Simulated assay, not measured.
Amino acid sequence: MASGGFVRLPDGSVVVALSLPRPGAPERVVRVLVHAANRQRALTRLRNLGLRAVYLRGNAAPPDPDEISAVLHHPDGIVWRSTPQEAAEPWHPMGWLLGRRVSAV
């Protein structure tokens, strides 16, 4: 089960943040951020990448302003990093987590 939340931006789009088990290492958790037109579209983007059991229930852990800035400035609009964050760990493209190249949708 994923914990997370979302923030609606002034243009009507949303940034969804989820804490998920890392594929291949379920004992480790990653924070995934997705920028999309709406919550359903954000979750669909993750499911299309192979993360099938992704759901957002509630808004317990919405993205903070630094996370919003990170995903908005990434060309793919979807990034991740380990949780809890290691010292100065940057945000990574989703392809790094999944072990393949992922293009913008």
Results as ranks from 00 to 15, higher is better:
M1E: 15
A70E: 12
T44E: 15
P65T: 09
L20Y: 14
R57G: 02
R57I: 07
S82I: 13
S82M: 12
D76G: 02
A2C: 09
G99Q: 10
M94F: 06
A53E: 15
L9F: 05
H73F: 02
P84C: 05
A53W: 09
E27R: 07
P26C: 02
G99N: 08
N48L: 09
L20Q: 13
P23Q: 05
I68G: 14
L51A: 04
V16K: 01
L49Q: 09
P62G: 00
L72H: 01
Q85F: 10
A70D: 10
G12T: 13
M94C: 09
P93H: 07
A2N: 13
V15W: 02
S19P: 02
H74F: 02
L9P: 09
R57F: 13
G95C: 07
A104S: 02
A53P: 15
R45K: 11
E67T: 01
P62F: 00
P10I: 04
E89W: 14
V7P: 06
G95L: 04
L51M: 06
M1P: 14
A25I: 03
A37E: 02
G50R: 04
V14G: 14
G95P: 03
P23R: 05
L33D: 02
R52C: 06
V16Q: 05
A104G: 01
R41A: 09
G12P: 12
R8F: 11
R28C: 15
A37L: 04
E67D: 07
E27I: 13
H73D: 14
L97A: 01
H35K: 05
N48A: 10
A61F: 08
A37K: 00
D64R: 09
R100M: 05
L9M: 10
W91E: 11
G24V: 00
G77E: 01
D66R: 05
S3G: 14
G24M: 00
P23K: 06
G24C: 00
P63Q: 07
N59L: 10
L20W: 15
L9G: 09
R45V: 06
M94W: 08
R45W: 07
W96K: 04
M1N: 15
S13N: 13
P23F: 15
W91Y: 12
A25H: 00
P93M: 04
E89D: 14
V105G: 05
T44W: 08
